[in-house]
Design a protein around this nucleic acid. Sequence first.
DNA 1: CTTAGATTCAAACGGCCGTTTGATTCGCCT
DNA 2: AGGCGAATCAAACGGCCGTTTGAATCTAAG
Lengths: 206, 206
Amino acid sequence: MDLTPFSTRQRILGAAEELFARHGFAGASLRQVTASAKVNLAAVNYHFGSKENLIEEVFRRRLDELNARRTELLAQCRDRADLGLEDVLDAFVRPALELSLSDAGGAAFVRVLARAYAEHDERLRRFLSDNYGHVLKEFAAVFARLLPQLDKEELYWRLDIVSGALTYAMADFGVLKRRSDVSEQEHRERTASHLIRFAAAGLRAA
Amino acid sequence: MDLTPFSTRQRILGAAEELFARHGFAGASLRQVTASAKVNLAAVNYHFGSKENLIEEVFRRRLDELNARRTELLAQCRDRADLGLEDVLDAFVRPALELSLSDAGGAAFVRVLARAYAEHDERLRRFLSDNYGHVLKEFAAVFARLLPQLDKEELYWRLDIVSGALTYAMADFGVLKRRSDVSEQEHRERTASHLIRFAAAGLRAA
DNA sequence: CTTAGATTCAAACGGCCGTTTGATTCGCCT
DNA sequence: AGGCGAATCAAACGGCCGTTTGAATCTAAG
């Protein structure tokens, strides 16, 4: 009987995701990762080449899907005649919300994403910018159309603030604790909804 | 001629601040810290007892002053008759802004603070909550008075989002690059000003 | 000057780190 | 059945980690 139907590769990625979320990239060792994944220590370097590459693969596995979904929802926005700020914000936030609800690893990954910002690592930033920067550009263009009163610089300031608030809130970094009478799913959906209303008001500010 | 007029203790704290900001708590080693501070390796354990305690002291040194200044500005708010949201937000943001402009270490510390959120470390969170939680409570009370239309839960949601956006923006985590024709000081002041306007609009949202 | 306490120092401690090796096992194809 | 590449394994590599030691060096009071 095989209790571990997932491949060695997948089990490593899953364990790395959770441990990186909890202890950071430097703080989580490959020994912890491989022990948690119940695979041999050498498997990481066999399948990924190095810890650095493993980190990149942890991002790639989730971001490919996340950004495809964002692009898809944004395309739906473009067709709408009565498009509101809230719709575009939803197209950006909802995929992250869905990811965080999909499974335990998805929730962990949202925290990993937030850690990536804090790390300020140049290689990691370039990797993210090279692979997923175009999606952010597409969103910025749609926001620009909806907020014609803002000049380009002002718009970029505000989008930067929005992405910060979003990253922070979805990663559950705040001090706000989930009430015990609210399910994890309900809690996250409320977070997203509050976030969108707050961000829309901030973007519209005089 | 003594080129290093600061005490061993202070030089360790300064070097630790900068290296923790750049590489994180796990990523910056005591060997890097003591080399950068030009002190003996053993000095850290002599003066602070452990790396954990050093981390706490890095926080204490700056937060005591930061929160005293916040409390002071908040007290001035209480006396004003025509108090606006922006004034209270300013009382919260300005001390962080002043700190980040005071010296290189201050700017580094603002990033260290943001890292503390990302670390999600239980001991660190308790330390921050125990020592500085009362200041946040005072601000929350004043915000509650200015936003009577929001119930308590709604208010806490929004303040949580505000503190996230603030932490993220002041730590320069965004992708927005400072324009070369704007000084570092001017850049940070604009950040604070944009932040306050954005947050005020978000807090006022219907 | 002497002495006691505070501080600094080089060196070493055991332990964990990321990575590599070379042998062994597995799964599949002819 | 035999062979071959892919995958797994235990073991070891050099190196850096946080911490401790005990001697050397300061500093200031008796």
